[in-house]
Design a protein around this nucleic acid. Structure first.
Length: 581
RNA sequence: GGAGCUGUAGUUCAGUUUGGUUAGAACGCCUGCCUGUCACGCAGGAGGUCGCGAGUUCGAGUCUCGUCAGCUCCGCCA
């Protein structure tokens, strides 16, 4: 029999005193004293203490229960003799009159501090923890506020297909075989990009969607093979419209879900400045330690390595961490980071008792004076310097800068939210491996028309695109652009990235055709909700804000997917599996 | 594709440096005792392919090689 509950465990308090209540939940803890037992009963609202008299035949059955059993309890709320100030419901307890054991639990395969592997295998039990309950509810609040906000602003949510078509460029697609057309495949969407542009052509005007996106690439702590984006698109809109729409949205949502106030508009930085000063296209602006170019001031005489570098046009760049002296081991770790980014090495200089200390000062005729002065090195500081091609030096120092951030805890997690627009991304970059140009953002981005005229043939990497990223605390949380709504211009872009006219015809004729029917100028953006929620909650991993996440191997430990399928299914799809390699 | 860390009882871990008796602890589980706990307490008990496979050795949880899995990072992720 089901006890129809009158209250949730966490809502019981002194106001219920003397009342007969019914609560349902899971046993969290049993403390058995022989003549009676305390049972901590948990539901999604919290814990309340039940008191079972064990001298009563029916109630003594609680002794057969273990943690995890699902039970219903009818009892009287009474004020406690010994209150527990650590428990929200610690003023009261429930004297049990009758109860029902709904289902029996196996002993829990998880403990209070389970490993990631155990958590993922028994995710449904992990979800019963306070943290996961809080995170799922918080996520719901964020999405609800987004829907409310955009609905009020005249946006409508439109669903787009999951069984979709392979897009050019970008990530590896997840493919779904077609049974009715053997040898043909759907692709799961990497984003609803083309559909939302078609919705603009279709007169929807203001669209959004909480949409699932799929990318078959290697995973990270903040990257899952399927993830959730807030996809937004506006007709007759440009950068400024998207910026102000997004700023208003984030300000409203952040206030409603966290109570925090963020600025009404976010600072902006060009891609070029981000790269040269922060060594990253997603700069963490919560702290300083910017990268300086000291090529001009640097006197390399005597140090062959540096002389040669400057001879071939390399840059000398550096940054200073004030009043810190990293250890030998830490410097080694930073050197490895710099090398990973392509730098030949990492020089360092310390200022102690007015003298420069550095492993390279003995080579330099000026002992490193020109470099440290240019960087403004002061007593007790340490400077890190890289001599490499401009972008390599910046990226290497960008990695060093983040290492120092984490080493010395230079930012307080969660407390501050630093939003930043990064603009003026390049339209194209040259892919050495493939021997062709690719788009930095995606091919549907509007290139700067003047740059296009000027550089398309001679220097395509100089062409700027009308795209932008939104960065929060050093993490990319949204990406968008003004779209290319002019068919001939769109064709030019496709040509530049090496799509032949046959390929174009085969894969995109529908889209190019659609562009011919009075496409409104339009622009959009797509914030990644998993990351945004992760940052607001201060979680280390995106997995902690997703109910059923996958491992770094893109597997689900709970369902054991992916898995083999029956031969019958493969035959139906006319698929033969090649197990070689 | 590459690098690092980890894998021992149901769970979380110690033991691996320096190979050697019967692989330990805590929590959980089982049995019993206990009138006020909230990390209840007390007594007793069960529970192990040391991830898997080779190899070295008289002898491997411990050393070597391979492999699988989890995590973190690089490449990759328009």
């Amino acid at each position: 029999m089901l006890f129809k509950r009158t209250h949730f465990c966490g809502h019981l308090d002194l106001a219920c005193q003397g009342r007969e209540v019914i609560v349902n939940g899971w046993i969290r803890k049993i403390r058995d004293f022989g003549k009676f037992a305390f049972v901590d009963l948990w539901d999604h609202t919290g814990i309340a203490q039940m008191v079972f008299s064990l001298e009563d035949g029916e109630l003594s059955g609680i002794r057969q229960c273990i943690v995890g059993d699902s039970i219903g309890v009818k009892g009287k709320v009474v004020e406690r003799k010994d209150k527990n100030p650590n428990l929200p419901t610690g003023d009261i307890e429930v004297n049990v009159l009758s109860w029902e054991r709904y289902s029996i639990s196996e002993p829990f395969p998880v403990s209070e501090n389970p490993s990631e592997e155990t958590r993922l295998k028994y995710r449904y039990l992990d979800l019963r923890t306070e943290k996961m309950q809080r995170n799922l509810r918080f996520r719901h609040e964020v999405i609800k506020e987004i829907r409310d906000h955009l609905s009020e602003k005249g946006f409508i949510e439109v669903e787009t297909p999951i069984l979709s078509k392979s897009t050019p460029e970008g990530a590896r697609d997840y493919l779904v075989p077609s049974r009715l057309q053997p040898g043909h495949f759907y692709a799961l969407p990497q984003s609803p990009q083309i559909y939302k542009q078609l919705l603009m052509i279709g007169g929807v005007d203001r669209y959004f969607q909480i949409s699932r996106c799929f990318r078959d690439e290697d995973l990270r702590a903040n990257r899952q093979p399927e993830f959730t984006q807030l996809d937004v698109e506006m007709a007759y809109a440009d950068e400024e419209d998207i910026f102000s729409m997004t700023e208003a949205l984030f300000k409203d949502v952040v206030r409603k879900v966290t109570g925090k106030e963020i600025p009404a508009s976010f600072p902006r930085m060009t891609y070029q400045e981000a790269m040269s000063r922060y060594g990253s296209d997603k700069p963490d602006t919560r702290f300083g330690m910017l990268i300086s170019d000291v090529t001009g001031q640097c006197r390399p005489e005597g140090f062959g390595v540096l002389e040669e570098a400057l001879g071939r046009g390399d840059k000398v760049k550096g940054l200073v961490i004030p009043e810190k002296e990293p250890s030998r081991k830490e410097i080694d770790a930073m050197t490895d980071l710099a090398k990973e980014k392509g730098a030949g090495g990492l020089m360092w200089f310390k200022m102690k008792e007015g003298a420069i200390q550095s492993p390279v000062s003995k080579f330099l005729k000026d002992g490193g004076k020109s470099i440290t002065e240019a960087l403004g090195l002061r007593e007790g500081d340490t400077a890190f310097v890289v001599a490499s091609a401009d972008s390599v030096a910046s990226k290497a120092l960008g990695a060093v800068r983040l290492y120092l951030r984490d080493l010395y805890g230079l930012v307080e997690k969660v407390k501050e939210l630093h939003f930043l627009w990064v603009t003026d991304f390049p339209m194209f970059f040259y892919n050495e491996d493939e021997g062709r140009y690719e788009t930095e953002h995606h091919p549907f981005t509007m290139p700067d028309p003047d740059d296009m005229d000027r550089y398309l043939d001679k220097d395509p990497e100089k062409i700027r695109s009308r795209s932008y990223d939104l960065v929060l605390n050093g993490e990319e949380i949204a990406s968008g652009s003004v779209r290319n709504h002019i068919r001939p211009l769109q064709e030019k872009v496709f040509q530049k990235i090496g799509l032949t006219s046959e390929e174009l015809q085969k894969r995109f004729s529908f889209f190019l055709k659609a562009l011919q029917y009075g496409t409104p100028p339009h622009a959009g953006i797509a914030p990644g909700l998993d990351r945004f929620i992760q940052i607001l909650l201060g979680e280390e991993s995106i997995r902690d804000v997703i109910a059923f996440p996958k491992t770094t191997n893109a597997a689900c430990l709970m369902t054991e997917s992916p898995s083999e399928v029956d031969q019958v299914q493969l035959d139906e799809l006319r698929i033969m599996v090649n197990n070689k390699n």
